[in-house]
Simulated assay, not measured.
Amino acid sequence: MNRMKTVIATLVATASILPQVATAYAGDLNILTWEGYAADTFIPKFEKASGCKVTASYVGSNDDFAAKLAAGGGVYDIITPSLDTVPMMQKAGFVDPIDTSKVEGYNGVYPEFSKASAVTAEGETWAVPLIWGSVSLIYRADKVAGTPDSISVLFDSKYKGKISLWDDKSALYWTARYLGYNDIYDLTDEQLEAVKAKLIEQKPLIRKYWASAGELTELMANEEVYVSNAWTGLTSKDVNGLNKGFKVVEFTPKEKSEGWMDSMMIAKGSANTECAYKFISFMQSPEGQCGIAQSTGYFPVNPEAVSSCMDETLKKERQVGNIGFVKSLVMWEQPKRLDKYLEVWNAVKAAP
Rank of each mutant, 00 (worst) to 15 (best):
V128K: 04
S136W: 13
L205E: 09
V7Y: 05
P286Y: 14
Y173A: 00
E343H: 02
A347E: 15
G105M: 14
L11I: 07
V128L: 10
N240M: 11
A176R: 08
L179Q: 01
P303T: 04
E104A: 07
Q294C: 08
L199A: 01
I280L: 06
K268F: 01
V195S: 00
K115P: 10
L338N: 03
L130N: 05
K203C: 09
D238G: 03
T23V: 12
T175V: 04
A350G: 09
S308W: 09
I98D: 03
A24W: 11
E215A: 11
G108K: 02
E317Q: 11
C290Y: 12
A118M: 06
E304A: 03
G51W: 12
G241F: 13
A211I: 15
L165R: 01
Q202P: 05
L205P: 08
Y173W: 11
I184W: 01
A92G: 11
I266W: 00
A145Y: 13
T252Y: 13
Q289P: 13
F246A: 01
L18F: 10
W332P: 00
I131T: 06
L179D: 03
D64L: 02
A176M: 11
T33D: 10
T41S: 12
Q284M: 15
W166H: 10
L216W: 03
D167E: 15
Q334W: 06
T55N: 14
V225P: 07
A350Y: 08
W132G: 00
W174H: 01
D156E: 07
N222G: 12
G291T: 15
E250D: 15
Q20R: 04
L32D: 02
C275D: 03
A13N: 08
V344I: 14
N346K: 08
K5A: 06
S61T: 14
D238I: 07
S257L: 01
Y139H: 04
A267P: 09
K68T: 10
Y178E: 07
N240K: 06
L137W: 07
K198R: 13
V21Q: 04
I200R: 00
A26Q: 11
S134E: 14
P286V: 12
T217G: 06
E201R: 00
V344M: 04
I151C: 00
T232I: 11
